[in-house]
């Protein structure tokens, strides 16, 4: 069974259709890149997939649960991190782990063992009690990703996880993504770095609420007859940007 199944998913705000009948299947363990220009509808689509926003029409199942009728079950079986909101700056590393472990329904003993394992794996034991707000962005993002996986969700949603992060840390982050996928976690990721798009198993490009192209990076490049996903993206997104006034 696919980890994510989306059928004609649509969301309207008044007269504006933010997400326009998109259909996507993502296999278990796949790294799926969800690309699009600012304002193309990515965030609205993700909000529906994580059960935070009801669709106007269409349906989606995530980790086997319906996002509209079983949104609690969806939220228990997914992880989510975004660049804008992930961890609490005025809590320590360990406190953030405990908080999220509790929210995801882990027992105290599980939080302790998995938290220790996580800190050891990231090499963050010496700074377990430092406030997250004092950590460099790259560390915060790696920690946020690990915390999003603490309850071993079937699917993890990453919304621009590497925004503003340096080239070395971005690559370390993608190592973590590959490792999670190799353990069977399905990864649904947005990024504005087109070199990262090339690392995905498959990707889609959203333009004005619709999925304008979908496939493996190699197939998309062949379809458009270009050498990079960056060029595919520019060809699809530029008319939309011009029409929207920037």
């Amino acid at each position: 069974m696919n980890a994510i199944m989306v059928r004609e998913l649509t969301r309207r705000f008044g007269r504006f259709t933010a997400v326009d009948a998109i259909s996507v299947d993502v296999a278990a363990g796949e790294v799926f890149g969800f690309l699009g220009a600012n304002g193309a509808g990515k965030t609205t689509a993700i909000k529906m997939l994580i059960g935070l926003l009801a669709p106007s029409s269409g349906s989606a199942r995530v980790a086997g649960y319906d996002v509209l009728t079983q949104s609690d079950a969806v939220r228990r079986n997914i992880g989510y991190m975004s660049q804008r909101f992930s961890l609490y700056d005025d809590l320590s590393t360990r406190e953030n782990i405990s908080l999220y472990g509790g929210i995801y329904g882990l027992r105290d003993a599980e939080i302790r063992t998995r938290g220790d394992e996580l800190l050891r794996h990231l090499g963050m034991e010496p700074i377990a009690d430092a406030l997250v707000g004092t950590l460099p962005l790259g560390w915060k993002q790696k920690l946020a990703f690990s915390v999003a996986l603490l309850h071993r969700p079937a699917v993890v949603f990453l919304d621009e996880p590497t925004g503003g992060v340096d080239p070395v840390t971005r690559r370390q982050f993608w190592e973590m993504i590959y490792a999670a996928a190799a353990r069977g976690t399905t990864v649904f990721v947005t990024t504005h770095y087109m070199d990262e798009a090339e690392y995905c198993d498959r990707l889609s490009i959203m333009v004005d609420g619709r999925i304008a192209a979908m496939g493996t990076p190699a197939a998309l490049k062949a379809e458009f007859g270009v050498a990079s996903i960056d060029e595919v993206f520019v060809r699809l997104a530029r008319p939309a940007t011009a029409a929207a006034g920037g």
Binding site: A37, N38, Q83, H192, A237, T241
Partner: peptide
């Protein structure tokens, strides 16, 4: 100071 962080690839180019 980092004027294009979080901005899509097409807008960055513009």
């Amino acid at each position: 100071d980092e004027p294009t962080t979080g901005v899509d690839a097409v807008s960055r180019r513009e």
